[in-house]
Every structure is written in structure tokens, then in C-alpha cells.
Amino acid sequence: TIDEIIKALEQAVKDNKPIQVGNYTVTSADEAEKLAKKLKKEY
């Protein structure tokens, strides 16, 4: 679900690790936030 994706992003940001979500690779908190907002609009 979208919530699980967002939790995974938040965890990756805390661990400061890049995370791959679908076609996106998120490497920073800023990118994670942008991706989360984008995904919320889509779903």
C-alpha cells in the first residue's frame, strides 16, 4: 500500500540509505518527500 511505501521511505531516510521504489531511486529526505507527495496524488 501507499502507507507502506511511505514508511519504507521514512525508514530509509533515517538510515540514510538510498532506496528503490518502483522506477524511482530515492537518496535523500527531500526526494523521499517529493516522491511521497507524488504517490499520494496518484493513488
Score class of each variant (00 low, 15 high):
T1W: 15
T1N: 09
T1E: 10
T1S: 11
T1F: 13
T1H: 09
I2F: 12
I2T: 03
D3S: 11
D3V: 12
D3R: 11
E4T: 07
E4I: 07
E4A: 10
I5H: 02
I5V: 08
I6S: 01
I6T: 02
I6N: 01
I6F: 06
I6E: 00
K7Y: 11
K7L: 10
A8Y: 07
A8M: 14
L9W: 02
L9K: 00
L9Y: 01
L9H: 00
L9D: 02
L9P: 00
E10K: 07
E10M: 15
Q11P: 01
Q11Y: 06
A12N: 03
A12S: 05
V13H: 05
K14I: 13
K14D: 04
K14S: 07
K14F: 14
D15S: 09
D15E: 11
N16E: 05
N16K: 08
K17E: 04
K17R: 12
K17Y: 15
P18R: 05
P18M: 07
I19A: 05
I19T: 10
Q20Y: 05
Q20E: 08
V21L: 12
V21E: 02
V21R: 00
G22V: 02
G22Y: 10
G22L: 09
G22A: 05
G22T: 03
N23S: 13
N23W: 08
N23Q: 13
N23D: 12
Y24Q: 04
Y24W: 11
T25P: 03
T25Q: 11
V26C: 15
V26M: 03
V26A: 08
V26G: 03
V26W: 07
S28L: 02
S28G: 13
A29K: 07
A29E: 04
D30T: 08
D30K: 10
D30N: 07
E31H: 03
E31Q: 08
E31V: 04
E31R: 00
E31M: 08
A32K: 03
A32R: 00
A32M: 05
A32P: 00
E33R: 14
E33F: 13
K34E: 13
K34Q: 13
K34S: 11
K34C: 15
K34N: 08
L35Y: 04
L35N: 00
L35P: 00
A36S: 06
K37H: 11
K38A: 10
K38N: 03
L39I: 05
K40P: 02
K40W: 13
K41C: 13
K41V: 09
K41S: 13
E42C: 15
E42S: 09
E42F: 14
Y43T: 06
